[in-house]
Design a binder for these strands. Structure first.
Length: 315
RNA sequence: GGGGCGACUCCA
């Protein structure tokens, strides 16, 4: 059993799934009795790679062996369904787990929320917490993060905010992910000033914004063309020692390019290089497109040449 | 611990 475990883990890490299947087949034919943990680990590995039939086969095998699937087993199997976008499958696994009395924590519910998000089934979010209460399972911060993100994707910042308040009442502590999801909910529907306000709330609450948190607010301002505000947040980010990722520079550049502000777009590009980021394909495309629209063909061609030198693929 | 959450990008 020990060597089978090692083999499965090893092949799982290497993503050699044919080998994993082979090892599993041999294990089933051998007289070894794998334990719940090994079976669950195998279900996770198969499920992550979309090999649902194999994951289900392992699950059936457990039942035949008289092994009792635990809460993690059901969760792993659900996750497999979610990876394939099969929310109905995930639901039915959860039902089975509940019938078996095996569901012990909030993880399956958070996963279910993500399944609904993936399928755009926004109507389902409101029932989750009630369902959990009925099942006697307490939500955690991850449950609330999933819900806030779900409402954000549904374009319902007010509901996201309510979920946030509910989280506070429950005594859960917000993480950077919690705030970022909430900020995104507002940023997505153009409520950029509120998303900036949440950034402040976040810092006051003792959570240091990371580069994703800043990126959400900056992108929000960029998308609504509020470059002065975007630049302001950008400076706060840099001043607080947070390193902007290339995507943020591209987003600023893009906005300047859309506004036909070549001078500022070039400035951002230099800033990016000064920060040690090579311009990406998207950077060059923005610049070239901008020069062409401005009728500066030679500059566009020079930029194109630069792009080829720096071995970036044009698209 | 064998399981779950955030922008952009990529893939479908």
């Amino acid at each position: 059993v020990i060597s089978y475990t090692a083999l499965l883990r090893g092949y799982g890490k290497l993503k050699s799934f044919d080998r994993m299947k082979e090892v599993w087949r041999q294990l089933m034919m051998s007289r070894c009795k794998p334990d719940v943990r090994l079976c669950t680990e195998t279900i996770t590995l198969f499920g992550r790679e979309g090999m649902l039939e194999d994951a289900e086969a392992v699950f059936d095998f457990m039942l035949k062996q008289g092994l009792l699937p635990d809460t993690i087993t059901y969760t792993s199997l659900m996750h497999g369904y979610v990876c394939q976008g099969l929310w109905e499958g995930a639901e039915s696994v959860l039902r089975k787990g509940l019938q078996a009395g095996a569901i012990r924590d909030d993880v399956p519910y958070s996963i279910l929320v993500n399944a609904y998000v993936k399928a755009g089934r926004h109507e389902q979010y409101d029932d989750i917490l009630g369902q959990m209460e009925k099942d006697g399972v307490k939500p955690t911060i991850v449950t609330f993060n999933a819900l806030i993100n779900a409402y954000s994707k549904a374009g319902a910042p007010d509901k996201a905010r309510k979920a946030f308040e509910r989280m506070q009442e429950t005594g859960c502590e917000a993480t950077a992910i919690t705030y970022t999801s909430l900020m995104e909910a507002y940023a997505r529907c153009g409520q950029t000033e509120i998303s900036e306000y949440i950034l402040v709330e976040m810092r006051n609450g003792g959570t240091e914004p990371d580069s994703i948190a800043y990126a959400v607010v900056i992108n929000g301002y960029c998308q609504s063309g509020q470059l002065a505000n975007a630049e302001k947040i950008f400076r706060t980010m840099v001043n607080s020692g947070c390193k902007p990722q290339p995507a943020i520079y591209n987003s600023l550049m893009n906005t300047y390019a859309n506004q036909k502000n070549t001078v500022e777009a070039e400035r951002i590009c230099r800033l990016m290089e000064a920060a040690g980021h090579k311009p990406t394909a998207s950077t060059f495309n923005t610049l070239i497109g901008m020069y062409i629209k401005a009728g500066r063909r030679t500059t566009a061609e020079q930029t194109y040449a630069r792009m080829q030198e720096s071995k970036c693929n044009p698209d």
